[in-house]
Amino acid sequence: MKKNILIISSNHTGNGHKSITEALCEKFKMRENVNVHVVDGFSLGGKPLIAVGKSYGVITRNAEGLWDLIFDVSSVKPELINEIIEITIKEKFIKLIEEIKPDLILSVHPNFNGSIINLLDKYNYKIPVVTLIADLISISPLWADKRAEYIISPTVEAKDKCLQYGIPNNRIRVLGLPVRSRFHYNNITNLKQSKEDRKRLNCLIMSGGEGVGNMKKVANILLKNFDCNVNIIAGRNKQLKKKLELSLTHIYGDRVKVHGFVDNIQELMITSDIAFTRASPNVMLEVASCNVPFIITGALPGQEEGNPYFAEKYNLGIYCNNIKNIYNVVCELEKNNNEKLEEIKRAQRKYINFNSAEDVVDFIDSIPVDRSKISVLRSV
């Protein structure tokens, strides 16, 4: 009998949770013994909770202080968040459990770890819940629910934080952050070779799926001071895309191209010499998987605060917390025939584990299930 796995993800709070889910589904599809059902956790709460999920982009673009407050509240009062989400998703979640009858639930979003465990306990469902942490180092206690069967950590640093939150060592597995195979540089070498034929510096500026950050200043510094081409990813931020096109293309012509949310971003990454990005964990590791050095130009308060330190610790990229210093940083990277750029690329190849998604799927598939312990639905 096939094992039924339910993945609780998110479609609107950035693109990281969705990307991780896609990376796992690539591997699950190769297994005939597994059925996978993916649900956007926010959709279980109907329109009100969907609206909360969609507000992520607006808040992170326009009110970082508010996002910092939200993160702090969830860190201090994780039980409160769990209770609110539990009440909101209860009816649809229990109905989903009855329809799918999952043998195991995998959560890749912090808002749905404790809340779904609360509901499973209340309705006597003995279904193991596994948490896959989607942050690298600055993790919220919402990720670390002691009742989870296992917690899959992307890094040693995130594991250490889980230990501080009281999670037993034997319930944590460090398996890396799953990255979709199309970002693996060894899968797209033809594009990488075409990049080497060009002499002009190719730069990519992006800031996660929501288009956060002052990309115009970064582009101006690059285009004024270097013989370069610049691709800018504005993400879902349509207003930003329009502003950048109006302010940049009439000055720099075809040296600059502004894109919205794209499905082939790996092609833009792999043909770049340097990427400029916010400290989004998913974006950082996707760029590193493409073997492209990156410069971090900002980090959201809360879950991204430690990511610049993480990037520099493993020499995956460089943190430039003052945009005015970008000129000097790029000059330093290009010194001595791109010596530091090559150092970063070597460090990325050493650090990145292309088998991470496979390792996660192997581990999840190895967890034994007992269908006799799954209860019949009680009245909601």
Results as ranks from 00 to 15, higher is better:
residue 180 R to C: 06
residue 172 I to G: 04
residue 140 S to D: 08
residue 354 F to P: 02
residue 197 D to K: 15
residue 79 E to C: 06
residue 354 F to G: 01
residue 107 S to R: 02
residue 22 E to S: 12
residue 123 Y to H: 14
residue 46 G to T: 04
residue 233 I to H: 00
residue 221 I to Y: 05
residue 313 K to E: 12
residue 282 N to I: 11
residue 248 L to R: 01
residue 155 T to K: 07
residue 63 A to Y: 15
residue 105 I to L: 05
residue 122 K to F: 09
residue 216 K to V: 05
residue 79 E to G: 08
residue 180 R to I: 03
residue 165 Y to S: 02
residue 311 A to S: 14
residue 241 K to D: 01
residue 172 I to E: 02
residue 21 T to H: 09
residue 324 K to R: 10
residue 349 R to F: 05
residue 31 R to M: 12
residue 24 L to R: 01
residue 126 K to I: 09
residue 9 S to G: 10
residue 82 N to M: 04
residue 25 C to Y: 07
residue 87 I to S: 12
residue 28 F to S: 00
residue 97 I to P: 02
residue 67 W to Q: 02
residue 276 F to G: 03
residue 192 K to R: 15
residue 74 S to P: 05
residue 362 D to Q: 07
residue 113 N to I: 15
residue 87 I to L: 11
residue 251 I to H: 06
residue 294 F to N: 00
residue 184 H to W: 11
residue 315 N to Q: 10
residue 227 D to I: 07
residue 348 Q to Y: 04
residue 229 N to G: 13
residue 217 K to M: 11
residue 377 L to T: 07
residue 191 L to G: 01
residue 191 L to W: 09
residue 113 N to E: 11
residue 360 V to C: 09
residue 242 K to T: 10
residue 126 K to D: 15
residue 147 R to V: 10
residue 239 Q to V: 12
residue 309 Y to G: 04
residue 146 K to I: 14
residue 331 C to R: 12
residue 11 N to K: 13
residue 248 L to V: 04
residue 134 A to T: 15
residue 154 P to R: 03
residue 288 A to F: 03
residue 174 V to C: 06
residue 128 P to H: 09
residue 105 I to T: 04
residue 233 I to Q: 00
residue 88 T to I: 08
residue 89 I to M: 03
